[in-house]
Amino acid sequence: TTTLTYTDEEEARKAAEELKRRGITFTYTKRGGTWEIRIK
Results as ranks from 00 to 15, higher is better:
residue 1 T to K: 08
residue 1 T to H: 12
residue 1 T to G: 13
residue 1 T to S: 12
residue 1 T to R: 05
residue 1 T to L: 11
residue 1 T to Q: 12
residue 1 T to V: 14
residue 1 T to N: 11
residue 1 T to P: 11
residue 2 T to G: 08
residue 2 T to Y: 12
residue 2 T to R: 11
residue 2 T to Q: 11
residue 3 T to H: 06
residue 3 T to D: 03
residue 3 T to Y: 10
residue 3 T to S: 05
residue 3 T to G: 03
residue 3 T to R: 07
residue 3 T to Q: 04
residue 3 T to M: 10
residue 3 T to F: 10
residue 4 L to D: 02
residue 4 L to C: 05
residue 4 L to P: 01
residue 4 L to F: 14
residue 4 L to I: 11
residue 4 L to V: 06
residue 4 L to A: 03
residue 4 L to H: 07
residue 4 L to R: 05
residue 4 L to T: 04
residue 4 L to W: 14
residue 4 L to S: 03
residue 5 T to F: 14
residue 5 T to M: 10
residue 5 T to L: 13
residue 5 T to W: 12
residue 5 T to S: 08
residue 5 T to N: 06
residue 6 Y to D: 00
residue 6 Y to P: 00
residue 6 Y to S: 01
residue 6 Y to R: 00
residue 6 Y to T: 02
residue 6 Y to Q: 00
residue 6 Y to M: 02
residue 6 Y to L: 02
residue 6 Y to V: 01
residue 7 T to Q: 09
residue 7 T to K: 07
residue 7 T to M: 09
residue 7 T to E: 09
residue 7 T to Y: 13
residue 7 T to C: 04
residue 7 T to G: 07
residue 7 T to D: 10
residue 7 T to L: 10
residue 7 T to N: 09
residue 7 T to R: 08
residue 7 T to V: 09
residue 7 T to W: 11
residue 8 D to M: 06
residue 8 D to R: 08
residue 8 D to F: 05
residue 8 D to L: 08
residue 8 D to S: 14
residue 8 D to W: 03
residue 8 D to T: 13
residue 8 D to Q: 07
residue 8 D to V: 11
residue 8 D to C: 03
residue 8 D to K: 08
residue 8 D to Y: 05
residue 9 E to Y: 08
residue 9 E to W: 08
residue 9 E to V: 05
residue 9 E to Q: 07
residue 9 E to D: 03
residue 9 E to L: 05
residue 9 E to T: 02
residue 10 E to L: 12
residue 10 E to V: 12
residue 10 E to A: 14
residue 10 E to N: 13
residue 10 E to F: 11
residue 10 E to P: 04
residue 10 E to S: 13
residue 10 E to W: 12
residue 10 E to I: 11
residue 10 E to M: 13
residue 11 E to K: 07
residue 11 E to A: 11
residue 11 E to F: 04
residue 11 E to P: 03
residue 11 E to H: 07
residue 11 E to S: 13
residue 11 E to I: 06
residue 11 E to T: 11
residue 11 E to G: 05
residue 11 E to L: 08
residue 11 E to Y: 04
residue 12 A to N: 00
residue 12 A to D: 00
residue 12 A to P: 00
residue 12 A to H: 01
residue 12 A to W: 10
residue 12 A to K: 01
residue 12 A to S: 06
residue 12 A to Y: 11
residue 12 A to M: 08
residue 13 R to K: 14
residue 13 R to H: 08
residue 13 R to D: 06
residue 13 R to C: 03
residue 13 R to P: 00
residue 13 R to N: 10
residue 14 K to I: 08
residue 14 K to W: 07
residue 14 K to N: 10
residue 14 K to Y: 07
residue 14 K to S: 10
residue 14 K to Q: 11
residue 15 A to R: 04
residue 15 A to I: 10
residue 15 A to T: 10
residue 15 A to F: 11
residue 15 A to W: 05
residue 15 A to V: 14
residue 15 A to D: 04
residue 15 A to K: 13
residue 15 A to Q: 07
residue 15 A to S: 06
residue 15 A to P: 00
residue 16 A to H: 02
residue 16 A to I: 15
residue 16 A to C: 05
residue 16 A to D: 01
residue 16 A to M: 15
residue 16 A to V: 12
residue 16 A to F: 08
residue 16 A to G: 05
residue 16 A to W: 04
residue 16 A to N: 02
residue 16 A to P: 00
residue 17 E to V: 08
residue 17 E to I: 10
residue 17 E to W: 10
residue 17 E to K: 10
residue 17 E to A: 13
residue 17 E to M: 11
residue 18 E to N: 08
residue 18 E to T: 07
residue 18 E to G: 06
residue 18 E to A: 09
residue 18 E to L: 07
residue 18 E to F: 09
residue 18 E to D: 13
residue 18 E to I: 09
residue 18 E to W: 12
residue 18 E to H: 07
residue 18 E to K: 05
residue 18 E to C: 05
residue 18 E to V: 07
residue 18 E to P: 01
residue 18 E to Q: 07
residue 19 L to F: 09
residue 19 L to I: 02
residue 19 L to Y: 04
residue 19 L to Q: 01
residue 19 L to E: 00
residue 19 L to V: 01
residue 19 L to W: 02
residue 19 L to P: 00
residue 19 L to K: 00
residue 20 K to G: 06
residue 20 K to Q: 12
residue 20 K to I: 13
residue 20 K to W: 11
residue 20 K to M: 12
residue 20 K to L: 13
residue 20 K to P: 01
residue 20 K to E: 12
residue 21 R to I: 09
residue 21 R to W: 05
residue 21 R to T: 07
residue 21 R to V: 07
residue 21 R to P: 01
residue 21 R to E: 09
residue 21 R to S: 10
residue 21 R to G: 06
residue 21 R to M: 10
residue 21 R to Y: 06
residue 22 R to A: 12
residue 22 R to T: 05
residue 22 R to Y: 07
residue 22 R to C: 06
residue 22 R to V: 06
residue 22 R to D: 06
residue 22 R to G: 05
residue 22 R to K: 12
residue 22 R to H: 08
residue 23 G to N: 06
residue 23 G to L: 03
residue 23 G to F: 03
residue 23 G to V: 01
residue 23 G to Y: 03
residue 23 G to K: 04
residue 23 G to E: 03
residue 23 G to Q: 03
residue 24 I to R: 03
residue 24 I to W: 05
residue 24 I to H: 03
residue 24 I to P: 00
residue 24 I to V: 11
residue 24 I to Y: 10
residue 25 T to F: 12
residue 25 T to M: 12
residue 25 T to Y: 12
residue 25 T to R: 12
residue 25 T to Q: 14
residue 25 T to D: 15
residue 25 T to S: 14
residue 26 F to Y: 08
residue 26 F to I: 03
residue 26 F to H: 03
residue 26 F to D: 00
residue 26 F to W: 01
residue 26 F to G: 01
residue 26 F to Q: 00
residue 26 F to P: 01
residue 26 F to A: 02
residue 26 F to L: 02
residue 26 F to V: 02
residue 26 F to C: 01
residue 26 F to N: 01
residue 27 T to D: 09
residue 27 T to W: 07
residue 28 Y to R: 02
residue 28 Y to D: 01
residue 28 Y to C: 06
residue 28 Y to S: 04
residue 28 Y to V: 15
residue 28 Y to K: 05
residue 28 Y to N: 02
residue 28 Y to W: 12
residue 28 Y to F: 15
residue 29 T to A: 09
residue 29 T to P: 00
residue 29 T to F: 10
residue 29 T to L: 11
residue 29 T to N: 08
residue 29 T to D: 06
residue 29 T to V: 12
residue 29 T to Y: 10
residue 29 T to S: 09
residue 29 T to C: 05
residue 29 T to K: 09
residue 30 K to V: 11
residue 30 K to I: 08
residue 30 K to E: 13
residue 30 K to Y: 14
residue 30 K to C: 04
residue 30 K to P: 07
residue 30 K to F: 12
residue 30 K to R: 09
residue 30 K to L: 06
residue 31 R to E: 10
residue 31 R to M: 12
residue 31 R to Y: 11
residue 31 R to S: 11
residue 31 R to K: 14
residue 31 R to P: 02
residue 31 R to I: 15
residue 31 R to D: 08
residue 31 R to N: 14
residue 31 R to Q: 12
residue 31 R to W: 07
residue 31 R to C: 04
residue 31 R to H: 12
residue 32 G to Y: 05
residue 32 G to T: 04
residue 32 G to I: 04
residue 32 G to V: 05
residue 32 G to C: 04
residue 32 G to N: 14
residue 32 G to Q: 09
residue 32 G to W: 04
residue 32 G to P: 05
residue 32 G to M: 06
residue 32 G to F: 07
residue 33 G to W: 06
residue 33 G to I: 08
residue 33 G to Q: 13
residue 33 G to A: 13
residue 33 G to V: 09
residue 33 G to D: 15
residue 33 G to R: 08
residue 33 G to P: 11
residue 34 T to F: 14
residue 34 T to G: 08
residue 34 T to S: 10
residue 34 T to Y: 15
residue 34 T to V: 15
residue 34 T to E: 09
residue 34 T to N: 10
residue 34 T to I: 15
residue 34 T to L: 14
residue 34 T to H: 13
residue 34 T to W: 12
residue 34 T to Q: 12
residue 34 T to P: 02
residue 35 W to C: 02
residue 35 W to D: 00
residue 35 W to N: 01
residue 35 W to I: 14
residue 35 W to V: 08
residue 35 W to M: 02
residue 35 W to Q: 01
residue 35 W to T: 03
residue 35 W to E: 01
residue 36 E to H: 05
residue 36 E to K: 03
residue 36 E to N: 03
residue 36 E to G: 01
residue 36 E to C: 03
residue 36 E to T: 09
residue 36 E to M: 07
residue 36 E to D: 02
residue 36 E to Q: 07
residue 36 E to S: 04
residue 36 E to A: 03
residue 37 I to W: 00
residue 37 I to C: 00
residue 37 I to V: 03
residue 37 I to D: 00
residue 37 I to G: 00
residue 37 I to T: 00
residue 37 I to H: 00
residue 38 R to G: 06
residue 38 R to K: 14
residue 38 R to Q: 15
residue 38 R to I: 15
residue 38 R to D: 07
residue 38 R to W: 09
residue 38 R to V: 15
residue 38 R to L: 13
residue 38 R to T: 15
residue 38 R to A: 12
residue 38 R to P: 00
residue 38 R to C: 04
residue 39 I to Q: 02
residue 39 I to S: 02
residue 39 I to D: 00
residue 39 I to R: 02
residue 39 I to L: 07
residue 39 I to F: 12
residue 39 I to C: 02
residue 40 K to N: 14
residue 40 K to I: 15
residue 40 K to Q: 15
residue 40 K to V: 15
residue 40 K to G: 14
residue 40 K to R: 11
residue 40 K to P: 14
residue 40 K to C: 08
residue 40 K to H: 15
residue 40 K to S: 14
residue 40 K to W: 15
residue 40 K to L: 15
residue 40 K to D: 14
residue 40 K to F: 15
